[in-house]
Amino acid sequence: MSRYHPPPLARRMGLIATLATMGALAGVVALLLPLRGAPARAGAAQGVLMLIDLPAPPVPPAPARGPARAPSVQRQQAPRPGDRPSAQTPAPPSSGSVGRIAVPAVMERPAAGIMVPPQAAPAPPEPDPAPPPVDAGSRARYLERLRARIAARRPPGLHIPGTAIVAFTLDPAGRLRDLALAQSSGSAMLDRLALRTVRTAAPFPAPPGDIGGDLRFSIGFRFD
């Protein structure tokens, strides 16, 4: 009684192909690891070196800036569905934390000399002690617009926990002037994602004239 046998060589081809791909993957790792260095830790110089001197991002031509303002007003009034807070139930992770201001308890100072500005008491509604009269409500609204614009561009999570805090400065036109990693999340990948999120959210809407205070902000990204 004859029995049909499939060719034995075929059984190994797929496995060889995948092992070859794994080898290519390993080769990519071998090439990339020396570039990226050791995993970032709080205290590594890597966090410090993340200050990026930005070329001005490609700004849409002036006429387009006008209409771009109108949607941003909408944005302030109506945060995107995913950002809506739910007051009663524990907020699902993707709903953000509008209205709840996280107080950074102790800023981690990895190494002396890192350019971490001492954190002010968190207070978008807090009046600026400087003499020029400020509209606290206007500043609060502007901060919410900034945050909403950044939150709208947040990346999907990577199953890596950590909180990265990014500090940035805007010029009076709303363009990004400085961008720095104020606190590393412990993972270089999350840090890059956080910085990239703020960078691609720029240019921001221009701050209103009566906003008062300086234009330095920081924002934390809590990856779960």
Partner: peptide, 17 residues
Amino acid sequence: AQEATRLPDVDIASDAP
């Protein structure tokens, strides 16, 4: 060394769309 205004955190869940 000036103060920077801290915006509310952005939560990023790993089950995001």
